[in-house]
Design a protein around this nucleic acid. Structure first.
Lengths: 361, 361
DNA sequence: TGTATATTTGCAATCGTTTGCATATCAGAT
DNA sequence: ATCTGATATGCAAACGATTGCAAATATACA
């Protein structure tokens, strides 16, 4: 007889339906809050509250729900949660090329720092060709909680849209004057000044700047600070621009620099990578570093301290950059109307072997 | 009289309400599909269809809607869309430390390749301490369309959960036998073999491997291939392990290696960074490369080709890795039940100046 | 002009959560 | 037991989209 009543264990039609719905949702698709609620015999709201910081639920409820969730392998959908809470725990990071180790280290540290705070990075590769800064809007599309731009050359036309939508916007490595947009960057001009002063102090008479031809804000600032300090000492500077981020281009530019007359004997480079290219170019031309030419880099990355290069450079602590960005994001979330802030990270000259000994007077 | 009837331009009470609701939603919060619908005088579904590939809507409708959307600055919420479509255009990338340039280059290229396909990377920093591989589940939480693991040391306990949830899982740099999990990695053993054969062919008699002590799958494979080929030539190999990713540790390990007796005269390193540390350590000990000791790296990164090092290394084309990953993701989406695949990327020996000239017989 | 068919459009349900409000429960004090 | 106040729970309406279905409109053909 039982074969005619396959569901005879159930008292009501409704409970049969529930069972069917139940097993269906267990078999396919995602485990939802409703599945957990059913399994625990409580309402979905109760389940939600168990997973909500500061919501009230009894210890008994908590235990029941957590057991059920565990049994089913439930994980709350952050999409759905983000939709209603308007908070996704996503931070969009608009990045440029990661060809320089500094950029990578930044992303790595930033990613971990955010992870420690329970947030994730949404990586947005900045603008192939026609984008015109529209990549920023990706942050809006995914309802990120904030957007950080480390892509040095990207247009910021749409930053106002982000600010208007309530997104904190933080720029790494450049300054844009706009309400709601905060900036953190090195004290580039001061770094340039320190470089010039060291070179002059150690007897260099023909100074040069090897940079990216003003392609980025930081590059321009470093060049300006360097030039200004040189000018203050009555020196003019030579300049050579590296057209792209390839090593070949860097070496070629350095060679151009070293074959000019008068030949520079003190070169400040906009980053360590270029500085190393300069050192190699110099050596290839038979010049000795630092006797014939002194070279100074910027960033103090892993390469600079290698014994092969022992590069004198300006230490730009990437961890501090990350800390300041997070601090600015946090404070912007706390007080959205706060005035725009610019955080300058001081740089510190690290003297190694690519510059001459300082004379002690 | 008009001051008593501020809304006299409206015919019905309802239209007044609509106006209020309209202006409210224009003033604060997000512009939704309803706002656009109202602005264009059509239904929300119609708007949706304008933004849906392959849905039917008349040219007239399209024009009206696009104009309204433009006027309001509408952007569809990818959260809401993801919720119902169950497709987020997000790919979770679980990454380990980015201390090696190779990892950065990979992330950069991968990020751009995904951007070209309209997808974004959700960057998940792998496991601080206790995580036990739970980071993988972040992919589920955000309903990513796929998950790629490049973190070499992370536990994969939860990969089955991802597969079960229908997520393509691709592992970069290691093999795990599991249904639904695809792998792409270098032909490491072959690389090791090529390295050993070159060293032997150029007259090295005492071979050594400088690696990460088996910390990663690739490291083990490279060591094994190297050892096997050495064994085939009747040679045993020395091994030295670098305990962490710091430069100091690498140099220290290399120095330990070079002070053993018999001193190795041919060293294969598990990556370029270690190889350069080995070269520097050798030089610091007064050894000449390649006369006293030959050094071979792995990856053929930017550093290897620098004139300062001119490192003989195994070229591991990161672009191919990215291509294969994307291909595997795509094909897994097309045929979810496909058997697990392992893609081996061949490596190619690039002979530079850190190994001796080959004798021509 | 009328009918048959193809294409557009709108309605309403759904995706998986959260949360304001109203009700139910409970402990503690009378 | 009874009442009070606090705490827990459930109901139902959001959040911002998509989509199956049915109605409305356009197109084709005779």
């Amino acid at each position: 007889m039982s074969e005619f009543l396959p569901f005879s264990g159930f008292a009501t039609f409704k409970s049969v339906c529930n069972f069917l719905a139940n097993s269906v949702s267990e078999r396919m698709g995602r485990i939802t809050i409703k599945d957990v609620a059913r399994e625990a015999g409580v309402s979905p709201s109760a389940v939600s509250r168990v997973y909500t910081e500061g919501a009230s639920s009894s210890p008994r409820m908590r235990a029941k729900v957590e057991a059920a969730a565990e049994r089913l392998g439930y994980r709350p959908s952050l999409l759905a949660r983000g939709l209603v809470r308007r908070r996704t725990n996503l931070v969009a990071l608009v990045h440029g090329s990661m060809s320089d180790p500094f950029d990578c280290q930044f992303i790595d540290l930033f990613s971990r720092a955010m992870a420690d705070r329970g947030a994730r990075l949404l990586l947005v590769a900045a603008g192939s060709q026609t984008a015109g800064g529209a990549d920023l809007l990706q942050a809006l599309d995914y309802q990120a909680d904030a957007v950080v731009v480390s892509a040095g050359t990207m247009s910021l036309d749409h930053s106002a849209r982000c600010v208007q939508a309530g997104l904190p916007v933080v720029l790494a490595g450049r300054i844009v004057q706009a309400p709601g947009v905060d900036c953190v960057l090195a004290d580039n001009a001061d770094g340039g000044r320190q470089a010039a002063e060291l070179l002059i102090r150690t007897g260099c008479g023909t100074l040069a700047y090897l940079g990216q031809g003003g392609a980025t804000f930081s590059d321009r600032e470093r060049a300006a600070g360097f030039e200004e300090a040189a000018g203050a000492a009555g020196l003019r500077i030579l300049t050579e621009a590296v057209p792209d981020r390839s090593d070949a281009a860097a070496v070629a530019a350095a060679i151009r620099l070293f074959t000019r007359t008068p030949r520079p004997d003190g070169v400040f480079c906009s980053n360590d990578t270029l500085a190393i290219a300069a050192i190699e170019a110099g050596r290839a031309l038979g010049l000795t570093v630092p006797d014939d030419v002194s070279v100074i880099g910027f960033n103090n990355g892993a390469l600079a301290s290698r014994r092969t290069f022992r590069l004198t450079t300006l230490d730009y602590p990437v961890g501090d950059v990350v800390d300041h960005i997070i601090d600015l994001l946090q404070s912007r979330l706390d007080t959205p109307e706060r005035a725009s802030a610019v955080r300058r990270i001081p740089t510190r000259l690290v003297v190694r072997a690519s510059t001459r000994e300082q004379l002690t007077y």
